Structures are given as C-alpha cells and as structure tokens.
Computed example of a mutant assay.
Amino acid sequence: MDDARKAQAPIKGRGAASHVDGRYAVTVAHGEDDGWGSVYEDLSDAPSPQTRVTEERARSIVSRNDSPDVGHSASVNPYRGCEHGCVYCFARPSHAYLDLSPGLDFETRLFAKTNAAELLQNELSRPSYQCVPLALGINTDSYQPIERRYRVTRSVIEVLSACSHPFSVITKNAGVVRDLDLIAPMAKRGLASIAFSVTSLDNRLSARMEPRASAPHARLKAIRTLVDAGVPVGIMVAPVIPMINDREIEHILEACRDHGATSAGYVLLRLPHELKQVWREWLQLHYPDRAEHVMSLIQQMRGGKDYDSAFGTRMRGEGPFAQLIAQRFRKAHARLGFGSMPSLDTSQFVPPRKPSPQGELFG
C-alpha cells in the first residue's frame, strides 16, 4: 500500500481500516500530499462506513470442492461479503473478483442471493443430482447480521427440510438459534449439525478482530441452546494466531466442552492474496509493539513466507512452533474427551418435484 494511503487509526465497528486494492482492480487510487497534510488526516472520529446490500439473482448456488484438506465436497453460500468484518477472514480476497476492495468493501458492500432457495430446489430436482451433505456458509457466514432482514439462509434450510437433505452450518453468529424450529427436527433425524468458530474468549480482542460477530459469551450460550435441543455441535478454534490468541487454545476448548460441544478442530491463520495487507495493517494499528514478532512466527510456520497454500500444510503450518500448537491442541482435545461429529444421513433424501405450472394443478 502507498505510504500516503496507510490508515492512521482503526475504524470503530469495522475490521479493516482501509480500502486495500484488489488484485484485479481496473483503477487504483493513490493519495498525493498537497502540502496541507490532508492525506495524513486522522480519520478515527469519522463516521463508520455504512453497510450497503445489493440483492442479486445468482446463476448457480451449489459450489463443488475437491480440496483434500476441506471436510466437505459441496456448499451453499447465501451471501457474498460479510458484515462480521473479521480482519483475518480468508474469504476477503474473493471480493477482488467483483472489482471491490478485500478491505472495507468486503464488510460494507454485501450481496444477498435472494433466489438461492429457488436455485437450490431446481438443483436438487435434477435427475442427475447425487445427494451429499451441503455445508452452509463456508466462504462467508450464512448467519451474518443481514440474515435477520433477508432470511436467505432460512429459505435454503426450508428447501432442505422439505426434501430431507442433510446439511451442516459453520458460523460465529448466535443468530443460528432463531432457526432452531427447522434445525432441531432435522438434527434428531441425523440430517443437521452445527459448528461454531470461536476465536477468543476475550471480549476486547474479539471486538477488535471480528467486530460485528456475536460476542464470545453469546456463542457459548448458543452452543448450549443447540445442544439442549438435540443438535450436534462442534467447534473450530479458528484461526490460531501466534502471540495474539494462541495462549487461549486450552481455555476455548474447555469452555466449549463445558457448554456441550462434542467435537473440535483448529486452523492456523491463513493470509492469501490481499489479506496479507489487510492483516498487516490491522496488526500495526492494534499491536505495533509485537507486529514484527507475530509476522516472524507466522513466516516460520509458512516456509519463510506470509502464506503457503500447499495442501496438507495450509491449515496447520509446519516447523517447531506449528508442531507445538498441534501438540497442545491434541493434548487438550484428548483430556477433555472430544470426539467426532456424527455422520449425516443421505439415505432419507427425497428429490423435490421440479417446479412446473402444469404439475401444480395436481399438487
């Protein structure tokens, strides 16, 4: 980033502090000092950028995945962009495909796929469709704050419920409990499970890293609510960041186990593409005293680079510090008696009838 465009202060309620340029940007703005110091103006008291949502008619809704280190082969993402504003989110670079910034635009310029349920029903009714569990919200959180208004995720789950199609959700928003009326009955039939991403139990750190996600205590409460309703719940300590939240690994696992979570995993911080800039900027603004040390440890776990996307190591890293994290996690996981999530049942799936004006006469 050009020195004249570096953020001078965090923006309240937002994770990113500037409009980091996307790698496909057609035009790139550079600040030039006019002698009055305006380029270096402190914007800490400026109003927080407002969230803008565009309703879009998506062309497809089921994404396929064949990555060997991702635990699902098909997913549905009801939204593009995410208002949670998690500064570490690996999905931020996807906004570059829209010629938008993976920085502030990712959390303020959102897209709601309002025809998601219609597309999904069409997909599931295809004669060639093979039922596999669908993962909801893998790229961006399906229960981010705008779900309260748009209810796209709920409409997707209604389609899945009507045809007994198995699904899982990973979220960091306690709002998932609002759909318990749909999720709990499916979970009792082996058709649904929920995973929570828990990054920290420290409210202040959470507010800095993931400003519009549910607070840690709210996530723990939601875990207990879901478990009491018969829903299998797992957790992900994600991402693990050296010298930022790595000291909390055992405490997070203990708290989540106490609230009923039955499985647990972790993922090391990933910094693909423009996320490197977003993260480094955040680190300098919030933890300037340890920024260099944090990045040094990250690079030690990434073969000397900010990020290595190689399968097999991108989720866990390598080297002594990565091995130490893995060892600590394994010991706590075993001590607390975590198991694995139950497999979801694909045998109950009944394809929905393909929408047809003539067919509706005999419905």
Rank of each mutant, 00 (worst) to 15 (best):
L104K: 04
L104P: 03
D105I: 01
D105C: 03
F106N: 02
E107W: 09
T108C: 10
T108Y: 13
R109L: 08
R109P: 07
R109H: 14
F111Q: 06
F111P: 00
F111L: 10
F111V: 11
A112P: 02
K113H: 12
T114A: 05
T114S: 06
T114P: 06
N115C: 13
A116D: 06
A116Y: 08
A117T: 06
E118H: 09
L119Q: 12
L119W: 15
Q121Y: 09
Q121S: 13
N122K: 13
S125E: 15
S128G: 07
S128V: 07
S128K: 12
S128A: 14
Y129N: 04
Y129E: 03
Q130R: 15
Q130F: 10
V132Y: 10
P133N: 10
A135L: 12
L136N: 01
L136D: 00
G137L: 11
G137S: 12
G137K: 06
G137T: 06
I138F: 12
N139C: 08
N139I: 12
D141T: 03
S142F: 09
S142W: 06
Y143C: 00
P145E: 10
P145C: 08
I146L: 15
E147W: 05
E147N: 08
R148M: 14
R148E: 15
R149Y: 15
Y150R: 08
Y150E: 14
Y150G: 03
Y150N: 09
R151N: 14
R151G: 07
V152G: 02
R154T: 11
R154A: 07
S155A: 12
V156W: 03
V156C: 12
V156P: 03
V156I: 15
I157C: 05
E158L: 04
E158N: 06
E158Y: 05
V159P: 09
L160Q: 03
L160V: 07
S161G: 14
A162T: 10
C163S: 14
H165S: 09
H165A: 05
P166Q: 09
P166Y: 04
P166T: 06
P166S: 10
F167A: 00
F167T: 01
F167E: 01
F167Q: 01
S168E: 01
S168L: 04
S168N: 14
V169I: 15
I170M: 02
I170Q: 01
I170L: 03
T171E: 00
T171F: 00
T171V: 03
K172E: 03
N173R: 04
A174Q: 13
G175N: 10
G175C: 04
V176G: 00
V176A: 01
V176W: 02
V177Y: 02
R178L: 08
R178T: 07
D179A: 00
L180W: 08
L180C: 11
L180E: 05
D181I: 01
D181Q: 07
D181G: 04
D181A: 07
D181K: 05
D181P: 01
